[in-house]
Design a protein around this nucleic acid. Structure first.
Lengths: 122, 122
DNA sequence: TACGTATTTTAGCATTTGCTTAAATAGAAG
DNA sequence: CTTCTATTTAAGCAAATGCTAAAATACGTA
């Protein structure tokens, strides 16, 4: 936490200040988007989001069947997504359905679109 | 790893099969995009990517100054981004500059655009 | 009320992550 | 060739992650 501020001559103090203020101005979005990307940055959760976009709504049990994973593991992923309001739950009799939160589609759609982009240079 | 296949009647076997095959067909992109999102899903790395997009190229030292973080910590983040080819390094005298990999802009730009979207419902 | 299905929650644990500090490289310049 | 400057790498560690297994809820239904 000490050795910032480099000594090299080429360092452009003006540029550094500009960058600092632009980062500061975007602090909230940076935190929020990082959080969303982090949630989507897990293969299981990305699959869940993709499936919910495709099927509109699914229950834990369906997801467990499709992804061939433990119900509990899926449930814990759904909780994280719900905690951050990316998805919401509706209860119908004994079944709880999950769906993408409409308010977050502006953020989620561009992320999910990456899956269908041909120009993915892997 | 046992209790998948739910017993409930509403479960649509056809739908489950469809979902399974669509997931299987997208397995590679799902893995790759999850990996990229995971890299971008860290505030420090997201800031680095944002700054590189804005400034075209920066060295560890600049980033350390701007983000007010340990050079070593930044270096380790840069390594992760470089290992996944999201950025590349060019050496100029004693300084190593990093820049976004052009081949990955189709993936990176939509991600970074999320920062400037007004419709971020936080 | 007792049971069964659907789902969540808790606890435990191994793995991963991200930071700090210190040591190792590499190239310039004295 | 020794000394800066820039940067990476390695070691250590605390915190976070993601899974399993088991217990706890919730809600219909026999």
């Amino acid at each position: 936490m000490e050795n910032h501020t480099c000594i090299r001559l080429e360092a452009d103090a003006m540029q550094i200040m500009d960058c600092r203020s632009s980062i500061a101005a975007l602090d909230k979005p940076l935190s929020y988007i990082a959080e969303v990307l982090n949630l989507a940055g897990n293969k299981v959760r990305l699959q869940i989001l993709f499936l919910l976009q495709r099927e509109k709504r699914l229950c834990v049990c369906d997801l467990s069947d499709i992804l061939e994973m433990n119900v509990s593991a899926i449930s814990q992923h759904l909780r994280k997504l719900k905690d951050r309001d990316l998805i919401y739950a509706t209860k119908e009799a004994q079944t709880i359905f999950y769906a993408l939160n409409k308010d977050k589609l502006a953020t989620l759609n561009p992320i999910l679109d990456l899956l269908n982009t041909e120009n993915i240079a892997v």
